[in-house]
Write a protein that binds this DNA or RNA. Structure first.
Lengths: 255, 255
DNA sequence: CCCCTTCTCGTATGGCCTACGGAAACTATC
DNA sequence: GATAGTTTCCGTAGGCCATACGAGAAGGGG
């Protein structure tokens, strides 16, 4: 099941995301902490990378750090906040070019940088596909992403009310592809079977169940070999999506 | 966390998906069953619709049917198979036009039918967004979807190796949108708070954290009002994606 | 040496899936 | 009507999970 980010108290999670410590005015001190928030997040990310998000229980993260389970609750209000912190951490890890940083000139290549790094992020942290991002952690990583993608489409000449939709469409498509790849990798690990083997195993039973009459388009494409030598669907889809956005923008430029 | 479909033994799940009973040759009979597979699946879907997939435990499904928990294991090998059956059931529930059934003439409208019914499906069954479909149940519902989407792009004149990628890109984009909407609906239910309220609550803390210098494109678009009167991102994105596919196909047609 | 503050973490509760195996319910046969 | 054969029903038990609560430990400042 998907973990739901975005259920966390903003007054508590925002200072954590931006790593603002409490003012600590009189600093009365007390027992010194064994850990830091960063150490907890890093251990959780490492565990999730290795064993998946379901295996990233509070008990296992604590064990990896050599402390008792309940100690974690000193650093993080609950597991939900920990997941938010993990997510923004890896989002920021893409290190997308900020304002003033060097980037490709062509806007399509700029989108390419975003797509490549996002795919790499999901490959390194496939558990990310288990966390919905409809209410994302409002942290540095998430804001850097929005800034970068918006900056790539801002100069195209789109009308004002289409700039954000275009950026969101690009993000949605890129993320969908990266998530499918991540889910695939996790299944391969969990089952020891590749996607190709999985489909092959089912193809052997294909003729028992497949009704040619009800699926003429599939059958025709199959017989013509159209499933075998397919182009990469996400590369193709992103290319034509960008074509469509560019054509839309061109319609508003002076001819 | 996402539930992983596609981990199920094909020899057991395929007959269930297609509802082929064992031959029952000598039919020795025995104690008559209280339930059917369909009844179990229907109860599980109803429960998931109402309370979400996490709340759809074997114990709760059994309770809803008035039987002991372990009784369910007579009908389905495990919870994983039950989820597969639930998924194919609701996929088939879209009742997409099959070969010979009436459908819009224009291919864009045909895709529109697919998009609208898929969105409606995710609205009715938001738990679907928790199940990855990279190894989907090979059942009637899933095959009907592939057949329909492929049939809409088959007549465009695309080269053979781009027909399936185009169909997959459409599915990926439509599904990504529907899933975001579903996640949003689930969060609204779980928290009692709409997305707008959620963002508003965080906007109030915006100035404490947001650095204008690092986010010039966002800032400019915000000040110009580009976030307020935004067009629907998924409607816009699907339109330009189809534009891009059509333009690609036109490049192969005789001029 | 004591107080104050902070961090540490054992225990306990209520849930989850499902392996196992005995009891129950039905038909067919004698 | 008894018995055998077959199938379905389901209680129990074990090993996971998050986290509320509160007692005790470990520092600094006086």
């Amino acid at each position: 099941m998907t973990e739901f980010s975005g259920r966390t108290d903003p007054e508590r999670i925002l200072p954590l995301l931006w790593r603002h410590r409490a003012p600590a005015a009189g600093r009365p001190t007390g027992r010194p902490p064994k850990l830091t928030v960063d150490a907890v997040v890093a251990a959780a990310v490492a565990l999730a990378d290795a064993d998946g998000l379901a295996a990233t229980s509070m008990a296992k993260v604590a064990a990896r750090l050599g402390v008792g389970t309940m100690t974690l609750y000193t650093y993080v209000p609950s597991r939900a906040e920990l997941v938010d912190l993990m997510v923004d951490d890896v989002l920021a890890g893409r290190a997308l070019p900020g304002p003033g940083d060097p980037r490709p000139e062509n806007w399509r290549d700029q989108v390419g940088v975003y797509a490549d790094r996002t795919r790499a992020m999901y490959r390194a942290h496939p558990w990310l596909s288990q966390v919905t991002l409809v209410r994302p952690p409002i942290g540095p990583g998430m804001l850097a992403e929005r800034e970068y993608v918006l900056s790539t489409v801002s100069g195209l000449g789109l009308p004002l009310h289409r700039i954000n939709p275009a950026a969101l469409a690009i993000t949605a498509f890129v993320t969908a592809g990266a998530r499918q790849e991540a889910d695939s990798a996790q299944l391969r690990r969990a089952t020891g079977q590749s996607d190709d083997d999985w489909w092959l195993q089912r193809m052997q039973l294909w003729e028992d169940w497949f009704d040619v009459e009800r699926h003429p388009a599939m059958t025709e494409l199959w017989n013509a070999g159209g499933f075998h030598e397919s182009e990469d669907a996400f590369g193709y889809g992103l290319a034509v999506l960008l074509d469509g956005i560019a054509a839309d923008a061109a319609g508003f430029s002076p001819a």
